[in-house]
Design a binder for these strands. Structure first.
Lengths: 136, 136
DNA sequence: CCTACAATCTCGAGCGACTAGAGCTTCAAG
DNA sequence: CTTGAAGCTCTAGTCGCTCGAGATTGTAGG
């Protein structure tokens, strides 16, 4: 039986966050020791690692909830799980594209050679949208 | 003199957000009409556009506050403004790198060919970290 | 001038996903 | 038995908005 601290160490999820996950129903209510402390087994650790992993990949909590519901019913077609993953992939790709545009623009802006703020390109570029090359 | 709605239209910042910016001190307290409605001039619009632009670039509110303070004093060296922009650029690059790793992993995961959830790679991959290629 | 009705006002709460702190109780080692 | 780490609950704070309720103001048409 694992304490909440042990769970935290093994999963890399903070103690407070584990309690939070229980509170929002991502984890089931943990069993308790006779002194009211949470006690976990192997299964709960696995689920927590799953959650941690998905969160690291940027999957939202509602999406994780769906995935957990799916995995509770192994007979169901996995098309839905695929859909969740693909949707998320598309979101990530959009984010990357957007960040790349920002990167290009900031690179240009940060290359300012002025000495004082008065003629600084950084500030000017931020004030005047028409100096941008990309759209955002 | 512009109403708050006019400001919203011209800057692309929502009315509620303009009020919020005033509340947190990014915009100064607006002048009021005799019926207590906010009235703005050209300068305020310029600042709002500046803020909008910086936010679009992902600059945080505290950083924008700094930039505004800087621009209020045109004699100061712009090294600080450069620093803010460069720091932000580094952050963006990190985010891009991270998202790229996620993209690669999700691509692999989403290529699952199983029929039912029971043997679905999506769920398995999320549960078992050792299936990952990249670290995260 | 009157009437609609759109726009504005303030105040307060809610979002997502945690995080932090106060003030208490329990556990485990020595 | 004592001590100190680890646990407990509860509340509030974070960031950057966003929305809704319920009241007031602005403005255009008749």
């Amino acid at each position: 039986m694992l304490s909440i601290g042990e769970m935290a160490r093994r999963s890399g999820v903070k103690v407070a966050t584990i309690r939070y996950y229980e509170q929002i129903g991502l984890l089931e209510q943990a069993g308790r020791s006779h002194g009211n402390q949470r006690r976990y087994g192997r299964e709960e650790l696995d689920r927590l690692v799953f959650i941690r992993h998905a969160r690291d990949l940027g999957v939202s909590v509602p999406a994780i909830r769906e995935l957990i519901a799916l995995s509770g019913d192994p007979q169901r077609p996995c098309a839905e799980a695929d859909r969740i993953a693909s949707t998320h992939l598309a979101t990530i790709r959009e984010k990357i594209a957007r960040l790349r545009r920002l990167e290009a623009e900031l690179e240009r802006i940060a290359a300012c050679k002025a000495q004082t703020v008065g003629e600084c390109y950084v500030l000017r570029a931020l004030g005047a949208h028409d100096l941008c090359e990309g759209e955002h």
